[in-house]
Amino acid sequence: KKVIATKVLGTVKWFNVRNGYGFINRNDTKEDVFVHQTAIKKNNPRKYLRSVGDGETVEFDVVEGEKGAEAANVTGPGGVPVQGSKYAADR
């Protein structure tokens, strides 16, 4: 997939743990970017499923997906693991 931007910061608008996807609002352009659970590179080690939490600040790359921009290599700011959704089960 073609990389559009790297190391972008954004805020998770919403993320559905059961369906495994959601949207991140970019801090720079204010665009909403699709995020799939497979794009989460550093999950919270205490969580079973990969997820990001609503309102969480994340860092990610933006790539060209089939339906427009989507997030890739999602981590917390500075490459730390994401916090994850409060609806995702703990280990």
Rank of each mutant, 00 (worst) to 15 (best):
V82P: 06
A89V: 15
V3P: 06
N43M: 11
S51K: 05
K2W: 03
H36Q: 03
A89Q: 13
D32S: 06
V3K: 13
G53P: 04
L9I: 11
K7D: 11
A72F: 14
Q83Y: 09
K42G: 09
V8W: 00
K7V: 04
A5T: 15
V63K: 08
D61M: 08
A69D: 12
G55T: 06
T6W: 12
D32E: 08
G68C: 06
E66L: 13
F34I: 04
K41V: 14
I40Q: 01
E56H: 03
R91K: 10
F23V: 03
V58M: 01
F15Y: 10
V74L: 08
D28I: 02
D61T: 08
A89N: 15
E66A: 14
V74T: 01
E56C: 05
N25T: 11
A89C: 13
K7R: 10
P81G: 09
D54R: 11
R46G: 14
A69P: 14
G55K: 13
P81R: 08
N16Q: 03
A71K: 00
N43T: 10
E70M: 11
D61Q: 06
V35S: 01
V17K: 07
E70Y: 14
L49C: 08
F60W: 00
A69H: 13
V35W: 03
T57E: 15
K42C: 10
I4G: 04
A72Q: 15
V8G: 01
E59F: 07
F60I: 04
T6P: 12
G78C: 11
L9E: 09
T57K: 11
R26P: 02
E66Y: 13
P77G: 04
T29N: 15
A71P: 00
E59I: 13
D90V: 12
V82Q: 04
T11S: 09
Y48P: 10
K42F: 10
L49F: 06
G53Y: 07
K2S: 06
Q37A: 11
A88G: 14
E56T: 05
V33R: 00
E59W: 07
Q83N: 14
S85Y: 06
G68R: 06
S51F: 06
R50V: 07
K47Q: 09
V63E: 05
A89E: 14
F15N: 01
R46N: 15
N43Y: 12
R18A: 13
E59Q: 11
D32G: 02
N27F: 13
